[in-house]
């Protein structure tokens, strides 16, 4: 097993947001600033590494029929932990992330990696996979947050940028800007990687997929 590869794949080649299209809700919601994006990304990375580790260690003990509730409880435990840590050490971030910090519990990247990777692979590989995917997610949120902050508020990490500061386009920090910037960034990523843009979300790992995509196909 090539450990370096397990780590690197999440960063660019299988980036959870821009390539696999997972974890849309936090990507759109918290990226009004670069700092928020990094904070959310690193919190998710922490939860992802810990949950991958624990789920990987417990994979023999968790019965197949109730694996989803088991995974969710493990993930929710680490989410509670990171909530305490942020509340104690970075209260400003805790306030600005709001409910989305708790909603890391139902982030499909975490459940997806638990289901697709940690329950099938070794401990070291699972931890590296979690770290790689988490940092890829952080990178994506940082990029989104930077674009939206620079154009929307004329600042970057709170430092004001000349010219742009006096010509802000507040649309970028509004909810509509989230959809817009993500659409543009995915299009650019597809152009650069010379791939066709995806037609569907990366739902395969999502526990809701059976319901959602079944409905989709029925409609088609």
């Amino acid at each position: 097993m090539n450990y370096g590869k397990e780590f690197m794949k999440g960063l660019i080649r299988e980036n959870p947001v821009f390539v696999a299209l997972l974890g849309m809700c936090p990507t759109l919601a918290v990226t009004t600033g670069a700092f928020n994006g990094i904070g959310m990304g690193l919190s998710t990375t922490f939860v992802l590494i810990c949950s991958n580790l624990v789920i990987c260690l417990l994979k023999k003990a968790i019965p197949q029929q109730v694996k989803l509730p088991c995974y969710i409880v493990i993930i929710a435990t680490f989410v509670t932990l990171i909530q305490f840590l942020l509340h104690g050490f970075v209260p400003a971030l805790y306030t600005s992330l709001g409910a989305f910090l708790e909603l890391i519990t139902v982030n499909c990247i975490i459940l997806g990696r638990a289901e697709m990777f940690a329950s099938k692979n070794g401990v070291v590989a699972s931890v590296l996979d979690g770290a790689g995917m988490g940092l890829g997610f952080t990178l994506a949120l940082f990029l989104m947050g930077s674009i939206r902050e620079i154009f929307g508020s004329g600042t970057w990490f709170g430092i004001s940028i000349p010219v742009l500061e006096t010509h802000t386009m507040s649309l970028f920090v509004m909810p509509a800007g989230g959809f817009f910037v993500l659409g543009i960034v995915i299009a650019i990523v597809c152009k650069l990687s010379k791939k066709k843009p995806p037609k569907k979300l990366g739902c395969s790992a999502c526990p809701n997929a059976a319901v959602c995509s079944a409905k989709c196909e029925e409609a088609e």
Partner: peptide, 23 residues
């Protein structure tokens, strides 16, 4: 639609416009 926007990117931009109307 321009080739690089076909699929999800175009959907997201459309969602942005719908979201703008709710503003």
């Amino acid at each position: 639609t321009p080739a690089m926007f076909r699929g999800i990117p175009a959907t997201l931009v459309a969602a942005a416009i719908v979201s703008m109307s709710f503003l």
